[in-house]
Design a binder for these strands. Structure first.
Lengths: 214, 214
DNA sequence: TGTACATCAGTGAACGCGCGTTCACTGATGTAC
DNA sequence: TGTACATCAGTGAACGCGCGTTCACTGATGTAC
């Protein structure tokens, strides 16, 4: 049953879930994982960070809202945990793709780019959680530090350029890929070219068509 | 006074505003404009689409929440009106910049790109409203049709290429500029290069450094 | 020139909702003796 | 082998909040006569 508020704010009633079975003694930590996973799923399904409310998460897990306080001091901490996990998944997807692509640096960069966009489009709710301004309050997940190292190396090698230009190209990559993911998610009806083609074209234009460090 | 809910959802109490003077007879339409403007300002100040509630808008205008129903059938309609206005402003900013840049097509494209990013960064709340997924429900504002014509012409002329490549490059532009605006807004602490430099570099790489249709 | 009245431009109280958070509690499960 | 008991893993009711929306109303202002 939709209420007026539901219609107005786009809330969705979480599906009723049978009550979760209490964890065995000593396995209390299991609930923590289930909470994070449920929050992540809510994010994926609704695509809306505001949908991750303690009560919605609790409903999804099949537990009382108060139980969440057994593992997180407040809502912000839960959200932070979810974002940390999403970020780790994204970085992992990129690194795995690069490794699967072999040693040739442009191929690695290309693989990373495709992996980034694929992750973003396939898990658009989770991706959004990473860059949703409404979730940025208190301790942003630092994509700046840990996740970027591998990419920097690959781009630097592929370009064979100085640190300055490498950084510029890397920023161009990131912004373009981020734009690709977010715009396509929000304007699916626009006449987009194929993603693969767009990303390949981007890699060509940004790394220079033939100047790979061969 | 912050309540628990305030802390949790990031709500901000709108500043108390003295009661608005009732419009003269026949000037009832003026309230409509004030409502849209207040909503737009709320968006700009909070950067959060969820902050545009009927009650917050009413508080900002200095009027009762019910008064909004004199001009909009529901919240969704108000939000749509705001987005329409934001979009018009963005398109206007780009067109004006292009015209100020003269007739040379690459210069026009460059001017458009800078204008897009400048608008997005200066009015980040308003810009977000255009592409906020939470606001996409029911009748998206069509950036696809009206706003794109001028850009298409300029890019086509600058490239001197076929429709297919023109479209591809245009998409690359849009996604990259959108990414620039949104990522910088959300990660201001990242080590970004200067915006001007990044946009110029982008234009160079996407239009080809020297193959302007001279 | 005066006045009744329709209309315009709103107000104010109330509804039921979901929310984050607090508080006192409960019942199963291991463990010490 | 049996049992008291501490602890773990939660529950359930309540709080005050802001929200969208509905409803009946009010008071100033023009206009017809």
């Amino acid at each position: 049953m939709m209420t007026a508020a539901d219609r107005g704010r786009g809330r969705v009633k979480a599906p009723a879930v049978e009550r979760r079975r209490r964890a065995r003694r000593g396995e209390g930590e299991r609930l923590r994982g289930e909470i994070v996973e449920a929050a992540s799923r809510l994010l994926a399904e609704t695509g809306d960070a505001h949908a991750v409310t303690l009560r919605a998460v609790a409903r999804t897990v099949g537990v009382t809202a108060t139980s969440i306080y057994l593992h997180f001091p407040d809502r912000a901490s839960l959200v932070r945990a979810v974002r940390r996990q999403c970020f780790a998944e994204l970085v992992h997807a990129m690194d795995a793709a690069a490794d699967a692509a072999g040693a040739e640096p442009r191929a690695r960069v290309r693989a990373r780019a495709h992996a980034y966009v694929r992750f973003g489009l396939e898990h658009s709710g989770r991706y959004r959680a990473l860059f949703e301004p409404a979730l940025q309050s208190s301790a942003p997940v630092d994509i700046g530090q840990s996740g970027v190292e591998g990419v920097v190396t690959d781009v630097a090698t592929a370009l064979g350029a100085g640190a300055d230009e490498t950084w510029l190209v890397l920023v161009q990559f990131w912004t373009a890929l981020h734009g690709t993911v977010t715009l396509r998610a929000v304007r699916p009806e626009f006449g987009w070219p194929g993603v693969e083609r767009q990303v390949d074209d981007l890699v060509d234009r940004l790394t220079g068509r033939g100047n790979a460090a061969t």
